[in-house]
C-alpha cells in the first residue's frame, strides 16, 4: 500500500537528514526520525533512497540508474519491482513525491 496517489510522472526525493542507517551484510537498519520507526532495507530499497537524495527522479529514471549502478539488466531489475519498492518506501516516509 502506498501513502497516497502515485502517478508515473511523479519525481521521488529523499534526504539523508531524515534517517540514521546502520549497514550489515548488504542490509540496512534504517531509523526514520519523523516516524520514529525502524525499517530493514535491502540493497535495492536502500539504493532507491540514496539514489533520490541528490536528484529527484521518476520511477523509470530510477530503474535505469539503479541498473547502471548495480550492473543489472532490464530483466533482472524490472520496472515493476522498482515501482513496487517505491510504493513500499513511500509508506515509510523515507521518500516522497517532490511537491510534498
Amino acid at each position: 500500500m502506498a501513502a497516497g496517489p502515485i502517478t508515473d510522472d511523479m519525481k521521488w526525493r529523499s534526504s539523508s537528514d531524515g534517517y540514521i542507517a546502520t549497514e550489515f551484510d548488504d542490509t540496512y537498519l534504517v531509523f526514520v526520525k519523523a516516524s520514529a520507526e525502524t525499517h530493514f532495507l535491502n540493497f535495492l530499497s536502500f539504493g532507491i533512497v540514496t539514489e533520490t537524495e541528490s536528484v529527484a527522479q521518476t520511477a523509470t529514471e530510477l530503474a535505469m540508474n539503479l541498473r547502471r549502478r548495480f550492473e543489472l539488466t532490464d530483466e533482472e531489475l524490472t520496472q515493476e519491482l522498482v515501482s513496487l519498492t517505491l510504493s513500499e518506501l513511500d509508506d515509510t516516509g523515507l521518500i516522497w513525491p517532490e511537491t510534498v
Binding site: 540514521i20 546502520t22 549497514e23 550489515f24 551484510d25 542490509t27 537498519l29 531509523f31 526520525k33 520514529a36 520507526e37 525502524t38 530493514f40
Partner: peptide, 21 residues
C-alpha cells in the same frame, strides 16, 4: 553483530517509540 543486536533490543524497550531518535 551490532545491527542484529539493535534489532533485538529495540523491541524489548517499552518506550523506544516514545523517545524516538
Amino acid at each position: 553483530n551490532t545491527a542484529e543486536a539493535i534489532l533485538r533490543l529495540i523491541p524489548a524497550s517499552t518506550n523506544f517509540g516514545l523517545l524516538g531518535e
